[in-house]
Write a protein that binds this DNA or RNA. Structure first.
Lengths: 207, 207
DNA sequence: TAGCTTACGCTACGTAGCGTAGTGTAATAT
DNA sequence: ATATTACACTACGCTACGTAGCGTAAGCTA
């Protein structure tokens, strides 16, 4: 209590209230869930949190980065790292967990709207890649590296492409909305990728 | 000239000016190219087109649908239907053409921003699926059906999933921006999908 | 030709949300 | 005690939205 995280750079003046921070994130999360990102305004968040607008702007520069923090509070940890000793099972479990989290849920809509917002908000785009895309891919990379270690797929496989195939396909249906994210979809996507990877198609051709 | 498209439902009063329509679409297309969709305003479009705002609202209900029409004027017909007699070559040609159109181009940014806008504009979302996603998929479906007809892949293959794999993966890199759309990426994505499809992984399992 | 109807450009308006500034008070370190 | 920063509150100027009213223009119908 009151002890500085880093002695010597102790801040002077009144410290920022953690309670204010929590109230803002909670209000933003609620509004994100109830009405979506596009309909969420900073003024609404402030009113709902019982906080002044300036207390929000002091912490976040754009609506997108605020929404990202509110989103991560709910989203982090919902994506497991399966390790069954079988690539197809692991990928199926990972994609199924993702589908369960996003299909027809406020989380799914928030996910889509955050990606949308990032197309015109460079700050959010950077934060999104660093705090969502990066960590998620690190998880999925492990699944593929385990498969390489087991000899299921060639060690020259382009794991980045394989990850793009798996989740790019799923994000496609989420964002375009042309077809539903069914379990059959999950199984077939995984089956094609695993078959292709095992055939060495994700590796450089050996002439 | 002056003849009604459907006799009997001849409109009364002053007809809408095609010149106004063209001026609006041209101005919207220019602004979309120069500044992007997020920065484009109806007022700017009106000013640039030398037209009243009401003349725009009379024709389009939202910025998104206007931008879609402006976008299609430039985008339509840029995606060829390759038919070389070989699935891998056809898919590679199709994806390469798409990459060439979108990578580092205003068209690519407009594409991303339209998908973004569709996440919070239901009218645009419907129009997008009907006028962009639908026609594009119809093209790509032919490529896969030709491969089925040639016996390259099983006739039970889930062509919808295969299309999602091909373009979903590419859209993923466009929208997330985590990795570039290189030609090696194109070749590996196609190789995995073709290998998987030929192995029957996109078809229902035969017990 | 006269009359009806709709489109058009123009100006003006009310609304919403943005991001900032000013004020007085509260909380902490020196 | 004093300096410094955070906070709530109020107010402000700004931008863009979407609509309304006006007079004029351009077609049809009688």
């Amino acid at each position: 209590m009151g002890a500085p995280a880093i002695p010597g750079v102790m801040k002077r003046g009144r410290p920022r209230s953690e309670q204010v921070e929590r109230a803002i994130l909670r209000a933003a999360g609620d509004l994100l869930t109830e009405h979506g990102l596009a309909a969420m305004t900073i003024e609404d968040v402030a009113a709902r949190a019982g906080v002044a607008k300036t207390s929000i702007y002091r912490r976040w520069s754009t609506k997108g980065t605020l929404a990202l923090d509110a989103f991560l509070a709910d989203f982090l940890g919902s994506q497991p790292l399966p390790d069954t000793g079988n690539l197809e099972n692991d990928l199926t479990a990972a994609l199924r967990a993702w589908v369960r989290t996003v299909r027809g849920t406020p989380t799914g809509r928030a996910l889509a709207e955050l990606i949308a917002q990032a197309q015109s908000d460079p700050d959010l785009a950077v934060a999104w890649r660093e705090r969502v895309v990066g960590p998620a891919r690190a998880q999925h990379r492990k699944i593929l590296e385990h498969a390489v270690a087991r000899g299921e797929i060639p060690d020259t496989s382009d794991v980045e492409v394989l990850m793009d195939l798996l989740f790019g396909t799923a994000y496609h249906r989420l964002l375009q909305g042309h077809l539903p994210l069914t379990d059959r979809f999950v199984r077939r996507v995984v089956a094609v990728i695993v078959a292709g990877a095992k055939a060495g198609a994700a590796a450089p051709p050996t002439p």
